[in-house]
Design a protein around this nucleic acid. Sequence first.
DNA 1: GCTTAACCGAGACGGTACGTCCTGTCTTTCG
DNA 2: CGAAAGACAGGACGTACCGTCTCGGTTAAGC
Lengths: 193, 193, 193, 193
Amino acid sequence: MSTSQPERAVARTQVIMQSTLALAQESGYAKLSIEAVAARAGVGKHTIYRRWPSKGLLFLDSLLSLNEPVLDFPDTGDVLADLRQQTYAAVDLLANPPWGPLYQSLVGEAQHDPAVAAGLSERFIRPQTDRTVARLKSAQDQGQVAPDFDLDLVMAILSGPLYFRLLITQEPMTHDYVDRIFEALFAGLSPRG
Amino acid sequence: MSTSQPERAVARTQVIMQSTLALAQESGYAKLSIEAVAARAGVGKHTIYRRWPSKGLLFLDSLLSLNEPVLDFPDTGDVLADLRQQTYAAVDLLANPPWGPLYQSLVGEAQHDPAVAAGLSERFIRPQTDRTVARLKSAQDQGQVAPDFDLDLVMAILSGPLYFRLLITQEPMTHDYVDRIFEALFAGLSPRG
Amino acid sequence: MSTSQPERAVARTQVIMQSTLALAQESGYAKLSIEAVAARAGVGKHTIYRRWPSKGLLFLDSLLSLNEPVLDFPDTGDVLADLRQQTYAAVDLLANPPWGPLYQSLVGEAQHDPAVAAGLSERFIRPQTDRTVARLKSAQDQGQVAPDFDLDLVMAILSGPLYFRLLITQEPMTHDYVDRIFEALFAGLSPRG
Amino acid sequence: MSTSQPERAVARTQVIMQSTLALAQESGYAKLSIEAVAARAGVGKHTIYRRWPSKGLLFLDSLLSLNEPVLDFPDTGDVLADLRQQTYAAVDLLANPPWGPLYQSLVGEAQHDPAVAAGLSERFIRPQTDRTVARLKSAQDQGQVAPDFDLDLVMAILSGPLYFRLLITQEPMTHDYVDRIFEALFAGLSPRG
DNA sequence: GCTTAACCGAGACGGTACGTCCTGTCTTTCG
DNA sequence: CGAAAGACAGGACGTACCGTCTCGGTTAAGC
């Protein structure tokens, strides 16, 4: 079992992605250019175009190559605690460099480039969703979650407020914010008896 | 009391904004250029630069000039019904051209340009939030909403899931989606007694 | 009476042509690039493309802008002496920098680019030919030249051997070479009586 | 006695040269590229670089490989008739495809690339010159040519006017042009007695 | 006849330049 | 006098070739 790619090619791919991330952190995604990445990586432009069709997809790959173990969903038996822990982890990631600003740029680019949107959705969001839903399904089977709760919505409901803060109000995000969201969600909006 | 702006200047401003929207709808925000807007509007580039410092802010102004009366918050006395109605209206706006795609692009641009983010936040999001919070406050005073519910979170909780769909999964949005969100939110995740 | 061109534009045109000549002399026409000319002239590439459609025509204009007074045809009354003098002048020009090598390159380029060939022919060769033919016509009228001599051929016959040396054998050209050519031409190939 | 080259290598060399000529005829020398030749010939680029150091020399070799028997100098005993016949043959070659345009390009390239100039001179011009001079020398010995005629100039004087037309004015060349040149040369410019 | 070295196609690679587009600033011209 | 028109320097785009360089997969020569 071996990669069909020569090592040289793999090495270059990684140099390019690292240069991309470095430049994006230094100057921001808006000023990122393939020309600059090529220069920084000591690589011809064509070597980049051979691998990626657009700046957006290069950036997507580069960011995902950081692949921090965000998604290792804990399973302590207490589903609520696990969800909260998972959400803390997400906030820790999104609220801090390097991930936070880069990811924000990526989502921004996804609004202009459907290919980026698709990649983001399939390669980052979907796996996360699948794992979360699976964890909740198992909790639901054990009676820890209301049996008719619409699991497909869990990502929208739980991470929606995070994205709202990250993308729309662009205020800092903290564990406290997560706590308040959880409290509000579980207490419910309805008047108390 | 009179406008200090001569009518001609106002007219030009509007022609520019209309051209901006037309081009954005035809070719997408990514291909929008000040050069093209100037040509389309029959205006010198300088006339645009005199009014707006960047493409993003021109686009923000242009989009807000469409100012559809989205935000007229209903007050029927039933706060839940009102919220749902308001959310339907938001979905109707976001799910359809021209607003939907344009607004999506605007939020995308806000991720790259802090000035756009600030403008979006202050001129579009905040007023909406203020009105929503005021409506809920009044409902809270009347006991229709739990007294310790954190009103500042209502936008994040209610519109977060909409933005998640608009920006992240980019799936179509329907009234049914709103209903499911409301149901989940009010039923709660916790197991039923 | 004034040029319709603003002075600034004229100035830039000249800077570009001077840079073109400087680079061509330093590195040779083969290595001349519009990119390098633009950099050297402190000018955007578009400013060059706005004026010239191709490297060849830029070079043609640049070379002709040197417009040394080669072509001032002498008229001493002795047409043969005048022709010889004129040919000496041509050789002095072609055999020495800067004209010689640059002109050689120009003729080379004319073989690849019909627009250059046309420009060279009409703007450099034709005027020279016209003047030479006119001078000979007047000499012919005065009986200094055989009445049935085909004047249209004079350039081909007189400068042809020069071009053969410049372009084909690429050997150095001297006044002595001119003398030998004249001698051979006037002595004729035929056997002597 | 056998070629040290394996047949395969020879065959490849010829395929490359044929592809070169085919491309040059189709698109012109200016658009000829080693990349395109390699693709057309079904050959790796390195196989071309192994054989020729530059596009110009590849083209020179390719053109000379056509080696039409231009140079078979007739010897009928009448040196003037022979010269004229030889010149007709040269004109027939230069005035028509494929040789004409290709040879014109070659001379053009020789102005930019000294190696091509040297090759052209030594491999094409010199043999022709040698043969012509030898023929005239023999004629001179027989008294058909003036004994003091400078034989070294014959190529310059006879073919110079042809090159002037081919390269400079780029007008069509005909036997009639040759006749007029010959007439002018032998009649002489001087006034008649 | 089997190895082993050379040759070969294919094409990746770092570069350079192309010709185009757009930016944001600046003249110039016209109404 | 102010706006259109567009020239301008600059920078990036995506493409085409350059000449060099791996890479496997044939040839074909020497043992």
